[in-house]
Design a protein around this nucleic acid. Sequence first.
RNA 1: GCCGGUGUGGCGAAAUGGCAGACGCACGGGACUUAAAAUCCCGGGAGCCUCAAAACUCGUGUGGGUUCGAGUCCCACCACCGGCACCA
Length: 990
Amino acid sequence: MMPGLMSRRQYPFHLIEPKWQQHWDAEQTFRAWNPSDAVPASHPFAQRHGADAMSPEKIAAGQAPGKFYILDMFPYPSGAGLHVGHPEGYTATDILARYRRSQGRNVLHPMGWDSFGLPAEQYAVKTGQHPRVTTEANIANFTRQIKSLGFSYDWSREVATTDPGYFKWTQWIFLQIYNSWFNPETNKAEPISTLKYPDALAWPEGVTGVVVAQAPPPVTSPAGAPACCPPELEAKRRAYVDSKRLAFVSEAPVNWCPELGTVLANEEVIDGKSEVGGFPVIRKPMRQWMLRITAFAERLLADLDTIDWSDSLKEMQRNWIGRSEGAEVDFKLDGHAAKIRVFTTRPDTLFGATYMVLSPEHKLLAQITTPEQAEAVKKYQEFATTKSDLERTELAKEKSGVFTGAYAINPVNGEKIPIWIADYVLATYGTGAIMAVPAHDERDFEFAKKFNLPINQVVIPKDLKGGAIGPLEAPFCEEGVAFESPSHGWRLEDMNLPKDQQRLPWDFSPPDINGLPTAEAKAKITAWLESKGLGQKTVNFKLRDWLFSRQRYWGEPFPIIWKKGADGQLYHEALPESALPLLPPTLEDYKPTADGQPPLARAKEWLHLLDGSIRETNTMPQWAGSCWYYLRYLDAKNAAGFVGKDVESYWMGTAASARSSVASGQSEHSTLKTENSGTTPGVDLYVGGTEHAVLHLLYARFWHKVLFDLGHVSTAEPFYKLVNQGLILGSDGQKMSKSRGNVVNPDDVIGEFGADAFRLYEMFMGPLQDTKPWNTQGVEGVYRFLGRVWRAFVDEASETDYEQAAAAHGDSATFLGQIQLSAAIQDVPATPAQLKTLHTCIKKVTEDLEGLRFNTAISSMMVFINDAMGWEVKPASVYRTFVQLLAPFSPHLAEELWAKTNTKFGIQNVSLSYAPWPTFDPARLVETEIEFPVQVNGKLRDVIRIQVDASKETIEQMVLKSEKAQQFLEGKTVKKIIIVPKKLVNIVVG
RNA sequence: GCCGGUGUGGCGAAAUGGCAGACGCACGGGACUUAAAAUCCCGGGAGCCUCAAAACUCGUGUGGGUUCGAGUCCCACCACCGGCACCA
């Protein structure tokens, strides 16, 4: 920006903003206070609430200020610096934080850094510079930028996920998860010590073992297990425990991204490509750490009903969790003892199952495939498993598959149906096998058409009277009425076969579901299957366990070591808590090793422990640190625990908080707001982008539930209310990107218009949740508004003096004091009209803040100033109240004007940030006479002035006399007159 | 394909079922100024008719419906945005 072209400043924001930022820093204005904190008497919080406000007595008596926890999604400190999307959410939360503070709440509004991440590591691979150096430089830049916006963060609680003092506790929480199992009977996570061994793994009678002290101690083994012989049994017991842990090792096909050199969670793969960078992802079997999030699927789903999130976000999580109810059904095989179990959501269509499909990975394939088909099946399996997810998606247009040569018996009608394999059946969902009902399933229909398999219709639409059924053009997948169900293929000839050759017993009687609506048919056939021992009702989820390890350097190392058991097999063991934090080793080279090991494997000394055990070389994914950072803010410096108990229960807990699907057994459609305190359990408001819908927000809820079950936190859910800010697009309506050249740098905007204008513009653009394009001229608009506010307050002549001084001696904050308040601002009573203008504004701003409607709050302040700037005499009380309304939005300017009025009128130095929020007085809005629209048949014809309290009769008379209305009444009869008090009147004529 | 959301001036938008377009941008006109910038004031939905104004007609994606009255509620459809996508 060339200075010569820069227009004159609307007001000296370049001096005002740093001045107040320094003041807030020095005063620690925005410190949030924990229980038992002694508040310094000089602090404005103490001046408002008393120095003993947070004493245990006051908290116990419910006399401490209510908490308000308002949280931003902490940023990854990238090298590119802040973009305009960050301050959108941050400004919204800051406005609300300042508003609640002025309402008397103890506001917790923290900021920190999600600082583990790939870019710093990639830079390290290229340059050899330690990621910590890059990360710290980026954090410093982000801090500078964020501070320049004047947010009311409590910086004393700043956290960075890369700090050893932080990730010590990330590792500690991992160990809590590792040392837990999910008890299906209580539907809760429990310490692994409560796990009971099956009888087969019980210690033989009389065996007593000496517990051998090990380094590290066996924190993981269930109580009572002697740590000695017999070794085979010990290994089996260990394997059993390890198979139940919430953190477990699994060897399975995973998402491998060669470009990134790491595996990825399902949530991080989009359309077969990595969410970061968009690189291809392939399936590859690998040994990886998993977290058993699937055990919590039901609760993660049900508890969505207890929190205040947007419908679309809840729906995204619901879809991702993907609950579906159905039945598992066993099919006998023709000529084999084995059975194949399938999962179906439509057991009512069992009569229409004309073939079966197994996933190419199905375990029984080797056993059942006939010799003639073996070659083809093998080829198909190879074809299917080597395809990447991306190729799979692309090939999805055309169905493919191979016949195994084997047959299954349909349990309801004895029909022999062919068994195929096809990649449209997934190994990882349900049982990895389906019964195909081509008449009533899109995919089965397509497959049947392609391979010429029979299609039997067994459901008809409700409104269709039976009979008129021809060959199906398309599958009928909706609910309907069961039809001709028992008749298809019912093999009467079976009754004539010798008993051992019968596919079904001769007295076998399938249920008659004909004519039943789908729901009833499902229930009846499922009950029948259960009674015959052929199947049962089942619930399936799409959610998969969380793949938790990454082949990276710049992440939390696992506090896990590997040892060799007596049987020669490796097994894992947790490090003791005293070994935390486990730091990553120092490396020269951050690349993976030549043989494909993670970079940590390069550090030979770090890797091998003295006792011969080896460290885990994988690291945790970036999501680990963000799973609990909102808890660390509560007690950021606590060295003895991840968070103090009292502190946690003050900020997160309330009486209503323990409610969850576990306690109640079912979801509750209730807002959790507690009656007396007005506070909510968990984080009161969480604002961030929608990109974390099924990543961070799902993972954090999962960890929180584990911590809740183990008694470490007081609420079942971490985030009570969540709002997604909308995307800010470039001025061309496209997403901002370097390649488009439409990126707006916040530093430039602040330099030209100031932080207050920047904040105000981001809020004025439109509703917080909406996507909206950036418009620089729009910034100028709100900047002009702030200029008008300034000029409404200050004396023009003194400002000219200031400018001359600044021009002569250089710009300096010391000259700011030369600017005087306008002489029009006087300590006089306000007129009713002025009070009406003010209270209209108070009402609107207050209501809009409650509803997070910042754009309309701002427009009401514009309306106020457009009126108030023209007043010849400006009552100081009215002007000061307006400053309070403006303060949450544009705090620097508000502080400056507040201070100037303090000085002029000798008002004791009341901190603006803690001054009580203005109350709206309805009496100030009462009018005696109002404009009253007159409609004829719903069309506006006239506006008359009437007394507010005019009777209906008076109004009727006045309205009928209205000249303009008269024209439309001529020659017609008035049928009725509808009078809506204080709104309008409508004359209905015929 | 499925799920969710959104459709209002040239643009961002506003309207508990009650005067559509508040507020802002852009644009046009005026005041101030030697001039410009800045500032202040005024005007802008479309059509029709006018020298001009008044008046009138139409108007919130499309088509129906409910209502004295619909941007708002109901039904059907269209378009766009976001998410999921062979999950049986």
